[in-house]
Measured scan of single mutants.
Amino acid sequence: DEETLERIAKELKEKGWTLIVNGKLITDAREALKWLLEEEERR
């Protein structure tokens, strides 16, 4: 759910983690959240 996604995005940002999505590096939590939401919609 959205709360979980926001928590994940926040944790990613705090830890300075990066996500690699389709070979693209995502360092911004907002971008990561946007991607996660798009993935949820596809299901």
Rank of each mutant, 00 (worst) to 15 (best):
D1L: 15
D1M: 12
D1F: 15
D1P: 11
D1T: 13
D1S: 03
D1Q: 07
E2D: 10
E3T: 11
E3I: 14
E3Y: 13
E3L: 15
E3C: 15
E3K: 06
T4H: 11
T4G: 04
T4C: 15
L5Y: 07
L5R: 03
L5D: 02
L5Q: 02
L5I: 08
E6S: 04
E6G: 06
E6Y: 07
E6V: 08
R7P: 01
R7E: 07
R7G: 05
R7M: 13
R7A: 13
I8E: 01
I8V: 10
I8P: 01
I8W: 12
A9M: 15
A9Q: 08
A9E: 12
A9G: 04
A9W: 15
A9Y: 14
K10M: 08
K10W: 10
K10D: 05
K10P: 00
K10T: 07
K10Y: 07
E11P: 00
E11G: 03
E11T: 09
E11V: 11
E11Q: 08
E11D: 07
L12R: 00
L12Y: 05
L12D: 01
K13L: 15
K13D: 08
K13N: 12
K13G: 09
E14P: 00
E14V: 02
E14R: 03
E14T: 04
E14K: 06
K15N: 12
K15T: 03
K15H: 10
K15Y: 10
K15L: 12
G16W: 09
G16H: 06
G16I: 15
G16P: 02
G16S: 04
G16E: 03
G16F: 12
W17M: 02
W17H: 02
W17A: 01
W17I: 05
W17L: 08
T18C: 15
T18W: 09
T18L: 13
T18I: 15
L19V: 05
L19H: 02
L19K: 00
L19E: 02
I20M: 05
I20D: 04
I20T: 04
I20C: 14
I20F: 05
I20P: 01
I20V: 07
I20Y: 05
V21A: 07
V21H: 04
N22R: 03
N22G: 11
N22P: 04
G23L: 11
G23A: 04
G23T: 01
K24Q: 12
K24M: 10
K24I: 13
K24W: 13
K24S: 11
K24L: 10
L25K: 03
L25Q: 10
L25V: 13
L25R: 02
L25W: 11
I26A: 03
I26R: 00
I26V: 08
I26D: 03
T27E: 10
T27W: 06
T27H: 10
T27Q: 09
T27F: 10
T27N: 11
T27P: 01
T27A: 08
D28K: 02
D28V: 06
D28H: 04
D28M: 07
D28C: 06
D28Q: 02
A29F: 13
A29H: 05
A29I: 15
A29D: 02
R30H: 08
R30M: 14
R30T: 11
R30P: 04
R30K: 10
E31I: 05
E31P: 00
E31M: 05
E31R: 02
E31F: 02
A32Q: 04
A32V: 13
A32P: 00
A32K: 02
A32H: 02
A32I: 15
L33V: 06
L33G: 01
K34R: 12
K34Y: 06
K34D: 04
K34V: 07
K34L: 10
W35I: 09
W35R: 15
W35S: 03
W35D: 01
W35M: 05
L36P: 00
L36E: 00
L37D: 01
L37M: 10
L37F: 07
L37I: 08
E38H: 09
E39G: 04
E39P: 05
E39Q: 11
E39L: 12
E39V: 11
E40L: 14
E40P: 04
E40K: 06
E40F: 14
E40H: 12
E40Y: 14
E40S: 10
E40V: 15
E40I: 14
E40D: 09
E41P: 03
E41A: 14
E41L: 13
E41M: 13
E41H: 12
R42Y: 05
R42A: 07
R42C: 11
R43T: 05
R43G: 10
R43W: 13
R43C: 00
